[in-house]
Each structure stands twice: as C-alpha cells, then as structure tokens.
Design a binder for these strands. Structure first.
Length: 419
RNA sequence: CGGGGUGUGGUGUAACGGCUAACAUUCCUGUUUUGGGAACAGGCGACUCUGGGUUCGAAUCCCAGCACCCCGACCA
C-alpha cells in the first residue's frame, strides 16, 4: 500500500483525553479513533493488526478441532431467562433496547446462552460429541467505568469458543489442549515471554479457571509468579491453602501487575442443566453435556502488545501481527531515486511481501523516520541518493539502532527468511 | 456507583473579571529544501462543552447538567 493512499496521518501531539500508553500510541499513529469513553473505531492500520491477530487465533482454534460460526449480536430474552441472567439484578451491564413490536432485545455481553440454545438442536447422541464451536464477535458491556484505552472498553471484539463434551474426562482432555493452543497464540503474538498461565477462581464446577496474564504496568490484575515453574496465581485465590495445593512456595512468588489477555473456564453442567442439554449414551441413558468456555479479547490483546513492546519513539509490532512487514521509505524527489523506489515496491508486491510505501515527496526525511518509528513496522527499508550510491538499499529493524546497506539480493534474502 | 481532576480553532496549550481570545502544530498558497518531525513569506480555521446566574463587563466567579481522565467498587 502506498502511504499517499493511506488517509490516516500521524499526530505530533498526544491526545489530551487519554492517559494510557496503548491508546496514546495507537491514536497518534492512526490505528484507532476514539468515539467516546471505552468505544473505539479501528482505522485501516488498526484493522490490519486485528485481522492478523484474528488469523492466528483462528488457526490455533481450528488446530484443536474448533469450528467457526457467527452468532447474532441480538439476544433473545427468553433464552436468557432460562439461566436467570436476563435480569438486571443479576447482570447489571446489559445494553438492552426495545423492538418496535414491543419486545426487548439485548446486545451480546457473552455467548454461553446463545451457544447452549443453538447446540441443543444438534446434540442428541453421544455420536454428536465432542464439538468445539467458536465465534469472533463484537461484545457490548455497559461498564460503569471503562478505562485504560482499548484494554477495557464498552464494546470489544473477542473470540469465544465453547466446548461440549460427554463427560469430565473428555472435557479435561480438551481443556489441556486448549491451554497449549492459548500458549501458542500468545507466543505467536509476540508476548509469550511476558505471559503466564495463572490460576484463578473456578466457580462451581472446577477448583480453578486459568487466565493468561501478560505482565504490564497497565494491568488491572495482581498476580503472584513462580518464575522457575512459569506459572502464577491470581490475587483472588492467593491463599496458603492454594499455594500449597499447587506445590508452590510463598517465598518464591513475586507480585506483579498484569492484564488478562485470555481465560479458559470449566463450566461443568452450569448451562447444560437450564437448557436441558442432554445426549443419549451407548446404553440409551440421558446424560448432561459438560461444557467449557475459552475467551480472548482481540482488542485487548492488541493493546497489550502495544503496552508491553513499545519504546519512546512508538510502537514495536511483532512481525506476526504488524500491519505490514516492510516500511519502504523514499527519501528525496529526484527521478532516479523515485524510479528505484517504485521498482523495489513493485518487486516486493510481486513477491507478496507486505509493504507500506512512503512515496510522499513533500515530506522531509526526518518526518518519515519519525512516522516510521511511531507506526512500528518491523523492517524499514530506505531508498535514497545516498543508499543508491552505495549498494542500493538500507535495511533496519525497528528494534535496531543502525541499519545496513545491502544489495537487492541480500535484501530479499533477509526479508524472506524472517517471520 | 463513591471520590478527585479537566473541558478554549482539527490537534496540543496560553490568556489578572477588562482591547479584535494568543501561541505552536496541522491544513492551504508560494519560494527554497530532502538522512531524524526543515527554512522563509502569506493565508484559512473559535458563538471558549451546554443551560442558567452574578457583574457596567465572564474563557475567567457561582449553580446545574453533560462529556472526558484518574483512584476505588464492579468485571461472564
């Protein structure tokens, strides 16, 4: 994509109504636009990142047997009354609205009810199980206080997978696979080294749920980490009894601030009971389905990456989620340099290397460098009079201070072997 | 929902109760520039969040509302 076609521009000043680093950088660099407190639009660059993250999650979910679908934002009152969660006394953060015909509808704030209701039609026999449907979906929560930029919004985009299993054993087997899939996701998203699987309260049907907590000062949660064993405990279950039951030692636990980027949860029969979600086993007996839920907030994950990987010049995207792999900068406006840069741009495109081409000729070199650092694309390639007088192109990683001048062959070699 | 703070051109800020609301940036015109947010010249852009009140006079003081930020509570 040519930068002259990208309508967003970077801002020099930080927005006055944002304090959080993720919102500040993402707004300055033109990834998102704030609509109101806790509500953000994703601009072209932001959407590219979201889609990259979405694809990573999709691949990992499909790899463990997930089946993608798309449930409606609109929620049926009757369905929710089955679990008692329609009531504002039980769930106080609903966004609800009225139909012209008189009824009420809610906007999704979670998906268990919708899934249980749909899957009831399709689960009859033990032969129908297990199944692992999932959604990418906008979720709405009327938070009393949204905060921290895109880390906690009133509207957010998430992935939710629900597992429907015959029994505890089958559920547990999948649950373990889901843990690994989640680890893969956060590794691939570039924050694996900062992310800990964390024991948290489990509800009625399991002793624990598991959160994936990424260390960042902007975190809302307090966790206690055992760095050797690479696991952590959420403050909410940080008791002597729990520490002991996990075989941990209080002295080796370190307190840290973290943000919850993912959560997996055993639901047992909490939802299959009210929905009468049963199957017939081999002996013709009716059994309740055992469920689990597995969520990741994509916007929150994006914000967390920004929070934990940026520097004082801007964002540093991991290659896996960066909007582009290469930021190609044209410096100078003489015909020869421009022609060389155009040619390189076409070559990158023909090799399917994602590139943002700063082809603007009315912008100074300094401004292009500053923009490039702020936007945070992993590789910066400069074409200028100076580079052409040497071997051809200057390539520099966003994480490096100095680049090096390389010829075309070496350039493509470097780009094609990196991912 | 409790507490605290802030609302001024698109953006970031300034302005003792008193002149035509200032500066920077963005944007537009032109000239010169092109390796770290270039230089010069000219120009566009504001009912100072809304509604009341005090005053000869309000961006400034008072009241109410709304919005945004922060702390806390809450967070399938």
């Amino acid at each position: 994509m040519k930068q002259s076609h990208l309508f967003t521009k970077t801002k020099k000043e930080s927005p006055s109504d944002e304090v959080s680093l993720n919102a500040e950088l993402l707004i300055k660099a033109g990834f998102i636009n704030k609509e109101m407190a806790g509500v953000y639009s994703y601009l072209p660059l932001g959407l590219m990142v979201i889609k990259k993250i979405e694809n990573i999650i999709r691949e990992e979910m499909n790899a463990i047997g997930g089946t993608e679908m798309k449930t409606s934002i609109f929620q049926n009152k009757e369905t929710w009354e089955k679990t008692g969660r329609w009531s504002d006394d039980v769930v106080d953060n609903w966004f609800k609205t009225k139909l012209k015909s008189g009824g009420e509808v809610g906007l999704s704030f979670t998906n268990e009810e919708a899934y249980s209701n749909i899957l009831k039609q399709y689960i009859n026999s033990y032969k129908d199980l297990p199944i692992y449907p999932y959604d990418f979906k906008d979720i709405f929560r009327n938070e009393t206080r949204s905060k921290s930029g895109i880390l906690r919004g009133r509207e957010f985009y998430w992935k939710a997978l629900y597992s429907f299993s015959k029994n505890e054993e089958e559920h547990n087997e999948f649950y373990e696979r889901a843990k690994l899939a989640y680890k893969n996701i956060f590794n691939r998203a570039g924050i694996g080294h900062l992310t800990y699987m964390t024991f948290a309260s489990g509800g009625t049907f399991a002793k624990f749920s598991h959160e994936f907590q990424t260390l960042t000062g902007a975190g809302e949660d307090t966790i206690y980490i055992d760095e050797d064993k690479n696991i952590a405990i959420n403050k909410e279950v940080y008791t002597d009894e729990v520490i002991e039951s996990l075989g941990l030692n209080k002295d080796s636990l370190v307190e840290k601030k973290a943000i919850e980027v993912g959560n997996i949860f055993s639901l047992g029969t909490k939802f299959s009971e009210p929905f009468d979600l049963k199957y017939k086993n081999e002996n013709g007996e009716e059994k309740l389905v055992t469920m689990g839920s597995y969520g990741i907030g994509l916007g929150r994950l994006m914000g967390t990456i920004v929070e934990s990987l940026s520097d004082d010049k801007g964002i540093i995207w991991p290659e896996s989620v960066a909007p582009f792999k290469v930021h190609l900068l044209l410096l100078g406006d003489d015909d020869k340099t421009k022609k060389e840069a155009d040619k390189l741009y076409e070559e990158l495109l023909s090799k399917s290397i994602e590139v943002l081409y700063d082809d603007r000729t009315d912008v100074s070199a300094g401004e292009k460098f500053a923009d490039s650092d702020l936007i945070g694309i992993p590789f910066r390639v400069v074409v200028s009079k100076r580079s052409l007088e040497d071997h051809g192109f200057e390539i520099k990683k966003r994480t490096e201070e100095k680049g090096k001048i390389v010829g075309s062959e070496e350039l493509f070699n470097l780009l094609e072997t990196s991912h």
